[in-house]
Design a protein around this nucleic acid. Structure first.
Lengths: 401, 401
DNA sequence: TCAGAAACTCAAGTTGATTTAATTATGGGC
DNA sequence: GCCCATAATTAAATCAACTTGAGTTTCTGA
């Protein structure tokens, strides 16, 4: 076979699937909407919308709200997302913590389990993750048929030779380990895996400050640093699923040596690990984000020094992302405690001059994410929901082969 | 009106339009194909393909090739893009040169006109561009109804306050000038405007080395430096049409001062202008790329020094693009003469370790563009063709309002 | 020469959006 | 309080484009 996959054609079936997603997306971004309002927003006929809404209500995904009076004409019945229309499990694995949550369709956390780990290998983590999942299902008594799937977030990059297993910010032994397949085998539930930044971006897009944005970048400050890219209404993952791994871009040529072999990498300056290192802790491998929050609160001078040193590389990274991607905004978040992120953000001004510097903006150039430390678990939980409900080009493609 | 545009639904009409584009795209990327082969590639039924091919042949966009014998069964009739199915005009404006070309559907240049300019203002350039267009139409005796439109390429960024009109690499006076509208008024033909890097990316994708790629970055080395981003099968332009303006990302903190106000911008090291400046020319505003080609040929030591200094910032830029976007490849091109680009490319190895460094690659990490110095004019000419024939998410969206 | 294979065509069938018209429920004017 | 304009929703009929399945054509290979 010499000819490889091409963009494939579409038919009515795919079109219907797309339209259903469009309806859900419209309600998600604009709140409760009447059929007529949806029809106006989506440019579909009101009859079509009526059919789709009926089906979605039938399926439990939408629910009617109180009739709206006060205007002329027949009162409209607004529909909103039915939180109990479906559930998903979000898992997050990092150096010190494994977290699992149950999320409903509206993004509300219904249950949460946390377990300590210590730079876990796959052999250690996989049974734990499976156990967390079944505990969550048991304690929250989920109807199995309403469970949309498991979404998992973990630090990237994935499958990069010579990079994945190196350095204090990477998890060891996960190089080429088929996480999704294995977890699917252990739990019997469909699993989607993304890096933590991408998961957080989805969470922020579905339920947070990026709800209405078409293009934004989520800058995830965790043990290392990564970016989730949401461009033109779609998640961009890159040709090998590693887009946004900007922790290792060089911002200080000849600067601090990095575990990856290069010098002056961004995450040597802006990340939890960078802060720990700067503070001369006795055991940086087991420091915690809360420590940084405490040091900020009491005005520790070494911590202030780290803040001052981290600001310019962060500013430079934002400049690079703005110039390269011209997003509507850059959202900051991650495992870094919210007060620390806000401290960083407040020191960012004046930002560099970039294509983002225009007075015609409606959104600030930099926003702090809404969901706090659980952003990426909730984002992970949103993965199955997102893939089921987001209008995407893929949906219109007929499955080939 | 508080509710803004949402992603809109689709219907049969849009689906058909999409499928037509998919057929053209399949033939463009894979060469002449029989109806049956297209059906297999696109996952559409052979009957559907037959209908679409018939229509496209009727419209003059496809033409049958010689019947293929030698296999069992009824001989297949391959169809290919009919070069005479349509024409477009490509315009390019830069500091010293205005170029216009006529391109046919296959991307072949049918006519070319060149005029010298000197950092032209809109008032100077617009009549000239209109004149070039009408000369091209007259001399190549184009059927007006086969003319798909005018595509124009010029240096970005567009409409950025405090950045567009500053520095020796920007064209003065174009800030907020409505180029497309004005040229459309003067010529009576539909006009699309993109920055030179984006235009070059399209050219390379339609007719050059990126023909089969789903995600790549085109690095355009011109008077300044810019990138064209083709991601997941789509051109990414950014929320304010300025994605890829990476000439002003900081690669050397505290480095050479730049007209934009920052220090150590990429294009202060890698661009025609950077080379001219490094060579202490008496009049860098009127130097030409050919000069650099000559200096390379005779092994000029100052030029060699520039090459040596430019390589690391370029490597760093490629690293950043690879890490941020995980493209299949980075294509180098622009106004910089081909031998100089090749000289730079040959000095790039070893590239930095990035997510692109995997043995599972099918394409080299860096490629030199195919179309030479006319890449971006040809790409500009491809703009109207591209927007008429590329499968895009937009096509499925019903026009709203 | 003929069976098998593959490409292509024809006509009926299916699906889902649209059109048109009817129905329902409200507010406002008189 | 009675009409009527207005707006939302529903119902039935229509339409457009893809699919299906049964041919038809034209080749290769035995």
């Amino acid at each position: 076979m010499t000819l490889k996959k091409a963009i494939s054609g579409t038919n009515l079936e795919q079109a219907k699937s797309h339209n259903r997603r469009v309806v859900i997306e419209a309600i998600r971004t604009s709140g409760a909407l009447s059929r007529a309002a949806i029809a106006r927003l989506t440019a579909l006929s009101s009859q079509t919308i009526s059919n789709i809404v009926e089906e979605l209500e039938e399926a439990g995904l939408l629910r009617p709200e109180a009739t709206l009076k006060g205007a002329r004409g027949q009162p409209a019945v607004p529909y909103s997302i039915n939180p109990d229309g479906g559930y998903s499990i979000g898992l997050q694995l990092d150096h010190q913590l494994a977290v699992g949550v149950v999320s409903d369709l509206s993004g509300t956390m219904r249950a949460r389990i946390e377990r300590n780990v210590d730079r876990p290998t796959p052999a250690e983590a996989m049974p734990l993750l499976a156990a967390i999942s079944s505990d969550l299902i048991a304690t929250s008594r989920l109807e199995r048929k309403r469970l949309l799937g498991i979404g998992m977030a973990m630090p990237g990059p994935f499958g990069v030779e010579g990079m994945t297993s190196v350095g204090p910010t990477a998890l060891p032994g996960w190089q080429d380990f088929p996480v999704a397949d294995e977890l699917e085998r252990l739990t019997g539930i469909a699993v989607t895996v993304e890096n933590d930044a991408t998961a957080a971006a989805i969470g922020e897009r579905l339920y947070g400050v990026a709800r209405k944005l078409g293009s934004f970048v989520y800058l995830f400050i965790g043990t290392g640093l990564g970016a989730g890219l949401f461009l033109d209404g779609h998640l961009y993952k890159g040709s090998r699923h590693n887009a946004g791994e900007i922790g290792h871009i060089i911002v200080r040529p000849g600067g601090l040596p990095c575990g990856c072999g290069k010098r002056g990498c961004l995450e040597r300056y802006v990340s939890l690990r960078a802060a720990y290192d700067r503070l001369d802790l006795p055991d940086p491998d087991h420091a915690s984000p809360e420590l940084l929050e405490k040091m900020l609160a009491k005005g520790d001078s070494r911590f202030e020094a780290w803040l001052a040193e981290a600001v310019e590389p962060l500013r430079q990274a934002i400049d690079i992302l703005e110039m390269a991607l011209d997003p509507e905004t850059v959202v900051l978040g991650g495992f870094m405690p919210l007060p620390v992120i806000e401290a960083l953000a407040s020191r960012l001004e004046p930002l560099h001059l970039s294509v983002s510097a225009t007075s015609a903006r409606t959104t600030p150039r930099v926003l702090v994410g809404a969901a706090g430390k659980d952003t990426s678990v909730l984002g992970a939980a949103a993965l199955p929901i997102f893939s089921e409900t987001n209008p995407q080009f893929d949906v219109l493609q007929k499955p080939v082969g």
